[in-house]
Design a protein around this nucleic acid. Structure first.
Lengths: 244, 244
DNA sequence: CGCCTTATTGAACCCCATCAATATCTGTGG
DNA sequence: CCACAGATATTGATGGGGTTCAATAAGGCG
């Protein structure tokens, strides 16, 4: 149990966690100082460049992680190589699948990422004695389910143009913290995904994504600089183009 | 509090719950006799014919429900009428969205259904004092999320034929309890959905669904009688046609 | 600059949607 | 039991949105 120093430190937040976004809004927000300390003993910070495979489909997963920086994409692949992105995890999202040893998706760093990694066992144990943690996880899971269902509508029923607009609109909401419905009606961000990733997210080809982006650009709905930088002068207009 | 009779009955399962599938494998499996009794005081059984609108998108929802019989479809609709089914709930699934007053999907009886309906308040209160209940709900939510992601792959990347085969394969797994991977390799069931519903589920048109069904029929992958009755002589073959 | 990766643009094709007609099912009443 | 009507499903013909194949352009980094 090696908790020798616990009495001394149990009212202090571990240094690792102090600057962490997940400490407050993420899963770890459910934990008290001493629990946080206990978990942080088994925790490692992992940096990974874009493209790194974090866990493979059908891998046996021994760890969970919180996204601290960057974007993690969850993908599913068919035998012949067709691929679909089924989830994007932004900071401070939790990545992992409790109650199941085998993963049914693969996780990959879409951009350069920083993760807070901890062993499955530690968190599973902590979840059992901390209902509050399951509560947080349930909330995130229900939100992810809402998002997944929103994307099912996009994948099944929207046109290519609406799909691309929907994607940009979603990124704008996720990345640009300054944007609010009633706030300034503009947004700007760097795309965290390549065209290939966007295509895999929207169930389209690279070429169609590219064509729709130029179409939106020519309609003055967006401005693109250097391939990655996107400005949206009128977010509400983009929202309309997205079919919402 | 009106718990006068509780002392007498607290070790007995309410009559309502005794024959209920959800009592064991569903949410209510988390409850002890007396808690079950407490909840059952506010519970009503509701029967509804196919097509009944149970809750509308953007309704304020005051109740939750367990599906006892039949299939409930969760749908999302765009302003111009395009529609997508984003979830199918079979017995003993739970229907509802905790932690959020407003629904983001509408729920409709896909077949004739029987529901066990209880007020949001009652269950919310019970969930707070019963971590085990949140645990069950978390498990269901994570399963639904897995299924939703599976369908995102289907919607985004599969051909019409693969989509229809995937749908039939999924129904076979859900409805026919006799089927197991190594068990007898055949299945038979009544489709709980109309062609229009299947189309809305797969992001296709009615006509395409119909064409793919006849294509599968002519390839001897399925047998259809009277429009609704489907037999699958070789489930593994169907699985291959589904792209898995 | 030069090389490789990533993105855009063009042309032809194809799968699925659309429009339209026919067939089948289901339930009701004669 | 059959006839009828409305709903549901199948089948056919045509067209379009997105894919595919191919070439060019732009970005990133040594």
């Amino acid at each position: 149990m090696q908790e020798k120093r616990r009495d001394i430190h149990n009212s202090e937040t571990p240094a690792l966690c102090r600057a962490c976004e997940a400490r407050h809004s993420g899963l770890c927000g459910a934990l008290e100082h001493d629990e946080l300390l206990r978990l942080s003993r088994h925790t490692t910070i992992r940096q990974a460049p874009a493209g790194t495979q974090l866990i493979g489909e059908e891998d046996f997963v021994e760890t969970y992680a919180n996204v601290l920086k960057g974007v993690v994409k969850l993908t599913k692949m068919m035998a012949d190589g067709r691929q679909q992105i089924v989830g994007l995890q932004f900071a401070p999202d939790f990545v992992g699948r409790p109650f199941q040893a085998e993963s049914r998706v693969s996780a990959e760093a879409a951009s350069d990422v920083v993760l807070c990694v901890f062993p499955k066992n530690s968190l599973d144990a902590m979840m059992k004695e901390q209902p509050n943690m399951e509560h947080r996880l349930l909330k995130q899971s229900l939100n992810e389910l809402d998002e997944a269902r929103e994307w099912m509508l996009t994948l099944g029923r929207k046109t290519a143009e609406e799909k691309v607009a929907s994607f940009l609109y979603m990124i704008a909401r996720h990345i640009d913290p300054t944007h609010d419905v009633d706030a300034q009606n503009a947004a700007a961000f760097d795309l965290p995904l390549t065209r290939a990733d966007i295509a895999d997210f929207l169930g389209l080809t690279i070429e169609t994504v590219s064509r729709q982006l130029t179409k939106l650009r020519k309609a003055d709905a967006i401005v693109i600089e250097a391939n990655r930088r996107v400005s949206i002068p009128d977010v509400m207009r983009l929202r309309e183009l997205s079919g919402n």
